[in-house]
Design a protein around this nucleic acid. Structure first.
Length: 214
DNA sequence: CGCCAGATTGACT
DNA sequence: GTCAATCTGGCGG
């Protein structure tokens, strides 16, 4: 396991003692979406763009289910491509466009079910200058604290739809990263959905300044 | 092919 | 805090 000592700025709330560059295997995503979502906190979302490694620590996620989840793209219809992707192979990216933004999910569910995890925010780690350029902002706090913002910072668009995130082939993948203590994880209702489930399906790192606004 | 809701963002009162 | 621009995807006709 490759472990490297890194140093973030004074404002980082994480204990950056070192992190694992091990790419998360496909089997990691063969679990209940809520479980996968929680386990993804602390992991690294990595993108290689024009030879530059861009990355950030995942600090906010949401779990979505299949046809019985009113906020799911598979709700009441299995005909569309998004619905079929939700029920298809796990570990693939599901890129969904809404309000001019691209939202990045990773397909995750148990056998026979459907589901995905939406990546809502990352803490910038590597390639920050280039990410700021791609976003057109200078403020670190507003660089990747939102699902549409982080895809723009990482130059992720629809071309990544249905590409595997468990291998480096397409320049976008997820690594093991850091371990976040359970005591630092909080959960709430999902943001922006009109019809949510009773169960809180949003997970985030407590007091992390790179979590999206509530 | 037209319609429209929506897992957002950024600008503005 | 409020609000609307903007466009994809899924649906009906």
């Amino acid at each position: 396991m490759d472990v490297e000592v890194i140093h973030l700025g004074w404002c980082s709330p994480l204990d950056h003692q070192g992190y694992s560059r091990k790419v998360l295997a496909k089997s990691f995503y063969s679990e209940d979406p809520a479980l996968v979502a929680e386990r993804l906190l602390g992991a690294l979302l990595v993108r290689v763009y024009r030879g530059v490694r861009l990355s950030g620590v995942i600090v906010e996620v949401e779990a979505y289910y299949g046809s019985w989840d009113p906020a799911s793209r598979a709700y009441k219809s299995m005909r569309g491509d998004l619905a079929r992707t939700l029920y298809g192979d796990v570990g693939l990216a599901l890129v969904y466009g809404v309000h001019k933004q691209w939202l990045l999910n990773v397909v995750a569910h148990r056998e026979g079910d459907g589901g995905a995890v939406l990546i809502r925010a990352i803490e910038p780690l590597e390639g920050i200058d280039l990410m700021a350029k791609l976003r057109g902002v200078r403020d670190l706090r507003s660089l990747t604290n939102g699902p549409g913002r982080l895809t723009r910072a990482l130059a992720v668009d629809k071309s990544f739809h249905k590409k595997p995130l468990y291998e480096e082939t397409y320049g976008l993948w997820i690594e093991e990263g850091f371990t976040i203590d359970e005591s630092r994880i909080a959960r709430s209702k999902r943001i922006g959905v009109s019809k949510d489930l009773d169960e809180p399906l949003r997970f985030y790192v407590k007091d992390n300044p790179y979590v999206s606004r509530i």
